[in-house]
Amino acid sequence: MTLLLPFMLGAERYGLKLTEIQEVVEEVEPYYLPAAPPEVIAAVNVHGRILPVLDLALCLGFAPSPRGERMIVLSRPDFALVLAVHQIESMLTVDLEQATLSQSDAPEDCICGVVNWHGQMISLLDLDQLRKLVEEKCIVPGGDRVPACTDRR
């Protein structure tokens, strides 16, 4: 059994494994991060570390909706980032063996599997894909002309 933190992006429910999360921070002050692609909306001070905040909804092409006050700090050292999402829900225990693992034909969706939780579908966020996506946006020459994300509005 695995602990999963579900959160909402628009009307869709995503999830991250607890091991992928360092912590959830609340009401942190966002600071201006210049020269960043539009998806990277701010920087926050998490215990003295400067971490960029990624607007996950914007990055994955969802319509903008109000962001929650709580944000997710990822635990991977090579992906030091804070995710802003619409709303974070309470932790679930799921059986990942039962999840439908997808070899997604659309890697920019950043989904590596889908869990059925009592009839509700939770998409597992694929951090490797997300990292690639963010890297591309940062390294594109003429970085402020970032190609638009797939639009699913």
Partner: peptide, 16 residues
């Protein structure tokens, strides 16, 4: 700047 933003042109790092 932490990975993956280290490659961002024009940003020389941050300070608290």
């Amino acid at each position: 700047m932490p990975s993956p933003l280290e490659g961002l042109r024009g940003l020389g790092g941050g300070t608290i």
